[in-house]
């Protein structure tokens, strides 16, 4: 390993940014794949794999990908929720891998809600 210059410190930090975002739990956007029994049975794992692949391909380093349990609408699984910082969460239903990739590109990266696949904007009220 060659000796570092001050600029190399920036390069290393940049390369590590995705990990830093994940560890601090504070990204620009959060994508939640619903992985209850229903979601998993309907193919949520494929959705997760597709998302991981597209994040890696795009080199996205400011998006947090996470899972949660059943969203309560088992008939419309697989589902995912996209939450851009300071925006209301959007729930997408009846997903497949192509739809997932499109949502990631248009909504997560582009900021435009894909209304064709969206169920609703917003979440249930929490006590």
């Amino acid at each position: 390993m060659a000796k570092l210059t001050p600029e190399d410190l920036d390069r290393i930090a940049e390369r590590m940014k995705r990990q830093t975002t994940l560890r601090e739990g504070a990204g620009r956007a959060k994508v939640t794949v619903h992985m209850g029994t229903c979601g998993i049975a309907a193919g949520a794992r494929k959705i997760m794999t597709a998302l991981l692949a597209v994040i890696e391909k795009e080199g996205t380093d400011d998006v947090i990908l996470t899972t949660s349990g059943c969203a309560g609408l088992c008939s419309r699984e697989p589902m995912m929720t996209v939450e851009l910082k300071d925006n209301a969460p959007v729930k997408y239903v009846d997903l497949d891998e192509d739809k997932t990739r499109q949502i990631f590109t248009d909504h997560v990266l582009g900021g435009k809600i894909v209304s064709d696949f969206a169920l609703a904007v917003g979440s249930e009220r929490q006590s």
Binding site: M1, I12, R15, M16, R18, Q19, L22, R23, M48, L51, L52, I55, E56, L65, T66, T67
Partner: peptide, 20 residues
């Protein structure tokens, strides 16, 4: 220096980390 000790595999995408 072995690469594994000095640098993390930062190019890889993970969805979760368990910090023990």
């Amino acid at each position: 220096m072995a690469e594994t000790t000095a640098s993390s595999d930062a190019s890889k995408t993970y969805r979760a980390e368990l910090l023990i």
